[in-house]
């Protein structure tokens, strides 16, 4: 780092490392980066889950018919299969239907006991070739009692909840960033106050404001990176712990309620960007704080 500083800013004219003004900064930044890392990971996991739900349901519909009219069932199937954009239409037999209901009604049910509706599983190509409204019209003509279910009733509230959670996560990241900026501003102002005499001398012998700001910004970069590294390491460990708990059979039950926190490589990259991010925020904040303060000098 001292080599880097020699290239970038020269030796420090102010003993910023030893004045204590930035002593707590790495810890504060570490905490912020930790919280931001978890919030980001949660957001990405939720986003992934929402995308999987949507993809799983894209291009699938269910047609529900009252039982007891096999001829009408065949006619409906024929209408469905003739509709453009429909890839497959399969009538579920009674056993398959019962299996679908098992989670609600329990196993070991005799299909004969129940007057179950007939279900048609419909697969479309999911593209523009398929027109759901047109299908609904044709279906109503063939069998007015048929119900077309595109699952939006179930998925939309879930997606809305996921979106709300994502917005919450983004707000946490923004708030944490703002708090980090504030602590850097205060640490920098403390440094400015401690070294006011020396700064005045530098100013009076012809130092540009940017020369003085450089002294503070490299120190802030150092502290920001140190804190960022610490917070990121802690966040990475926590996430790895979540992922391991999700895989472990004994803990799988406990972790089942959580969204899968296993991150994609892209997700890990986004998390890793928190480190340069913390450094950059520290550097820019310190620089702007110093420049604004110095602008008040004649």
């Amino acid at each position: 780092m001292s080599g880097l500083r020699r290239i970038l800013g020269g030796p420090l004219d102010l003993p910023l490392e030893r004045d204590g003004s930035g002593r707590f900064l790495p810890w504060i930044v570490a905490l912020m980066v930790y919280i931001a890392a978890l919030a980001l990971a949660g957001m990405m996991a939720l986003h992934g889950a929402a995308e999987r739900w949507q993809a799983a349901l894209a291009g699938t519909l269910t047609v529900e018919l009252p039982p007891g009219d096999a001829a009408r069932d065949d006619a409906v199937l024929a209408v469905l299969r003739a509709t453009p954009g429909v890839r497959r239409a399969d009538l579920l037999d009674k056993a398959a239907t019962v299996k679908l209901l098992e989670p609600w009604l329990g196993a070991g049910l005799d299909p004969g006991d129940l007057d179950l509706p007939r279900l048609i599983d419909l697969r479309t190509d999911g593209g523009a070739g398929f027109d759901e409204a047109a299908l609904a019209t044709r279906l109503a003509a063939a069998a007015p009692e048929a119900r077309l279910d595109d699952h939006h009733r179930w998925v939309d509230p879930l997606l809305r909840t996921a979106l709300a959670a994502e917005i919450l996560g983004a707000s946490i990241v923004l708030l944490v960033g703002a708090a980090a900026v504030l602590s850097i501003v205060f640490a920098t102002r403390t440094g400015l106050a401690i070294h006011q005499g020396a700064i005045e001398v530098l100013h009076l012998i012809g130092a540009r404001d940017t020369y003085i700001a450089r002294q503070f910004q490299w120190q802030a970069l150092r502290l920001g990176l140190r804190g960022g590294l610490l917070g990121l390491a802690a966040g990475g460990l926590t996430l790895a712990g979540f992922a391991a708990a999700g895989r472990s059979p004994s803990l799988a039950g406990m972790a089942a309620g959580l969204p899968r926190l296993a991150l994609t490589p892209l997700g890990w990259t986004a998390l890793a960007l928190l480190l340069p991010g913390a450094g950059l925020v520290a550097l820019v904040t310190a620089r702007v704080t110093v420049l604004r303060s110095l602008a008040r000098m004649p």
Partner: peptide, 22 residues
């Protein structure tokens, strides 16, 4: 108004450093 943590040499060199000479 000497800068307390700098040596005599660095104090005297300050105007040159500030002007970009080192």
């Amino acid at each position: 108004r000497l800068i307390p943590h700098l040596s005599a040499l660095d104090n005297v060199a300050l105007p040159l450093r500030v002007a970009g000479l080192r």
